[in-house]
Computed example of a mutant assay.
Amino acid sequence: MENIAKVCSRLIFLSVICLFFAQAIIADKPDFKYSFGCLDKGDYTSNSTYKANLNHLLSTLTSNTEIDYGFYNSSYGRDPDKVYAIGLCRGDVKPDECRSCLYNTTNFLIQHCPNQKEAMRQDEYCILRYSFCNIFGIMDDDPVYTQHNVNDQSGNLDTYNQDLRTLLDGLRNQAAAGGSLRKLAEAKSTGINNKTQYTLVQCTPDLSQTDCSDCLLSAFGQIPLCCDGKIGAVIFTPSCNFRYEEHTFFGPVADVAPPSTNTSVADIAPPSINTSAAKGNDGNKSQTVIIVGSIIAFVVVVVLIIISCIYLRVRKPREKSESKLINWFIVKKV
């Protein structure tokens, strides 16, 4: 009986320790929280021409299934009720996942910003914004949304900040030099304490090289205000965004073909290309599934161990009592 109790106690103790480490792993990869804004720059009524134009534009924004580079920009209607919209997905997101993200974001904004002429929502995988003003090719670094990892950086902070800024500046130049379909750069590097750093920067590709560079510079300037000393952060503006972490959060990014030279931007969809789609964020999702699945299986095992221990502890005295009762009957019979 005592041996069984010791074994059960040890198993439960080890289970608690393992569960603690599993929770620590999850804590190192915090969930991304979206942000949205219903900008106070004018309202429309439910039966207005602007609302009809907005609904039409948002319902058709991602209808061009040939677009596989994650950037949608289109407009609909005539002034003063003309609507402009931009949708941008992270460069590694698959085309179908990109359209799904933008579709969900569209429904979200319609529900939460039912009368505002201008609104924007940032998700981990996509950004959608619309306005009654022309937003194509115009750099906008306000409003700013920031989120940081809860864990602090270890080691020399000055050295870390210097290395991070050098890395970000290099990626800024690389992204700004991108074409009209994609302005993005990502890197996997080794930081202080030999820890791996994953970084991604991105602009809406309708920006000029100078505007993309300036937008990212402005966004980088938010780090001391929100995220100084943290091992990871994400900062969004309407025209650009970037993120860095000590864990991978993006997958492979496919190359895109150069755009056709006989198209314009205004009221038509961007030019189609024939490149293969990016592999997207399958790695991130599979990692999440593996971690969650492992924890669920682990919890089930812990519960089974506890139930087994309780059963054995209850059953053992009962077996002894039954044995004594049988022996008593045998003695009486003799």
Rank of each mutant, 00 (worst) to 15 (best):
L184K: 01
G155N: 11
T60D: 15
A5V: 05
Q122F: 13
F132A: 07
L14M: 09
M139S: 13
S260W: 01
C240E: 02
R78M: 06
W328M: 05
A5L: 10
C38Q: 02
V292S: 15
L19G: 02
D123M: 05
P114E: 00
S63C: 05
R243P: 03
D140K: 15
G178M: 07
C101M: 08
I26V: 15
Y50C: 01
V300Q: 06
L216V: 12
C212P: 01
L168F: 07
E186S: 12
L88I: 13
A278R: 02
N107P: 07
K33H: 11
E186N: 13
T196I: 12
I326C: 04
I268G: 05
T45F: 11
F220W: 04
T196N: 09
K6H: 02
I110P: 07
Q122L: 13
D142S: 14
C227D: 03
Q287Y: 10
I273R: 08
A177N: 15
L216C: 03
Q111V: 02
M120R: 08
L128K: 00
Q209T: 10
L39R: 15
K41D: 03
D79N: 09
I326M: 12
Y76T: 09
S154D: 10
C98E: 03
E118W: 05
Y198Q: 07
I326F: 12
C203M: 13
I295E: 09
H247N: 12
K6F: 01
V303I: 11
F32W: 13
A85D: 09
K33I: 11
C203K: 10
I4N: 10
G77T: 04
R121A: 04
I86A: 07
L167P: 06
S100T: 10
G178R: 07
D158Y: 03
R182N: 11
Y311Q: 14
D123K: 06
C101T: 03
C226N: 06
S272D: 10
P143L: 03
L58G: 06
V302K: 02
D282K: 09
S276F: 05
L54N: 14
A175W: 13
T106S: 04
F132D: 14
Y244S: 04
A277C: 08
L304T: 06
T210P: 00
V299I: 06
R313F: 15
G137K: 00
V16M: 05
V302I: 13
T210M: 08
S48K: 04
P270H: 01
G191T: 03
S180N: 14
G170A: 03
L54P: 13
L88W: 02
F236G: 06
K285P: 00
C203N: 14
P114A: 04
T105C: 00
T196W: 02
I305N: 11
P143Y: 02
R243C: 04
D123Q: 09
G91K: 01
P252N: 02
C212F: 00
R172W: 06
L325T: 14
D169N: 14
E245A: 08
A22E: 14
G293T: 04
T146N: 14
V150A: 15
V93D: 02
S46F: 04
